[in-house]
Amino acid sequence: MALSFTRIFDNDWVGPGLVSLAAIIGISIFQPSFLSPFNIFVLLSAISVNMVIALGQLVIIAIGQMNLALGAFGGLVAICFVAIMELYGVPPILATVIGLAIGALAGGLTGFVIARTGISAFIITLAGLQIFKGINLGITEAQPFYGVPQSVKDFGNLSMLGPIPWLVLPMIIASLGMWYLFARLRIGRYILAIGGNRTAAELSGINVTATIIWAHAISGLLAAIAGMMLVARLQIGQPTIGDDWLISSFAAPVIGGAVLAGGHVSVAGTFFGVVIIAIITQALVLFAIDPFVVQIVLGGLILWAVGINRLRELRVAKFNARTA
């Protein structure tokens, strides 16, 4: 009994899931409007976009690296997406495909440089952040594009069913895709293996270079999806899209139990990490607390989650030592 109880709590998503549930119940007692259909709609829209962003970082954390350029990818794709629709009249479906291609290409290129040179992902993606952001601002001169077609605006602001926005759709597809990737696909297993122990992975015949390029291309693809979702939601092509992704893209996976050294991630845990962040951000607004506090809370959440993960690691180590 005691053992199965511990087992349940060893699942990455249980802790964050319980915290989310408690937060929803707690806040709705004090503030019944929290569960109004409109508020749920707003909350789900925010969760959808942030989940895709977090997944973009998750796949890089899984391989034991970090991607500072995630927001720059998203911003560049968002701008190109609107620009080709406005300037060349490209239909939205085709523009979406082109946007996805740009994202995957930018990510793949970054991955290629990291894999081939062996230089730390931190410094390469820092350079990438600057390059892609510079191209973004060079194209737009910091002015937004306004020519977003009505169909794209509708996708970002209409509901699919009751309080459920259409934006949930890409989030669900991306989440299921990533879960399938890590649980069933060979490339996902390779990514986790390299994150867990790169040398061992290399010795067992995994093509490390190709896998790193794949991981970064997937990250770029997810950033592209998130960037275009934001265009649909904001209804304009803002050059500032992606500027504030860095902190939250790390916070959600870490709250969801991802090990930063790589090799261990949880898609479900990340989802609840995103939910917790969204609820807290919303609660601060509902209770009319200074919006600047959000930054402090986000930083605090990361530290808290890192501490919890660390404790769990130590507990597992102790347990293993006892049973061995």
Partner: peptide, 23 residues
């Protein structure tokens, strides 16, 4: 004290320091 890489600690602290300052 935490043994966690400085990347994630300072990522958190940059958010906290800046947030407190702006607040």
């Amino acid at each position: 004290r935490s043994g966690v890489h400085s990347f994630i600690i300072t990522l958190a602290s940059m958010s906290i320091f800046f947030g407190v300052m702006i607040f």
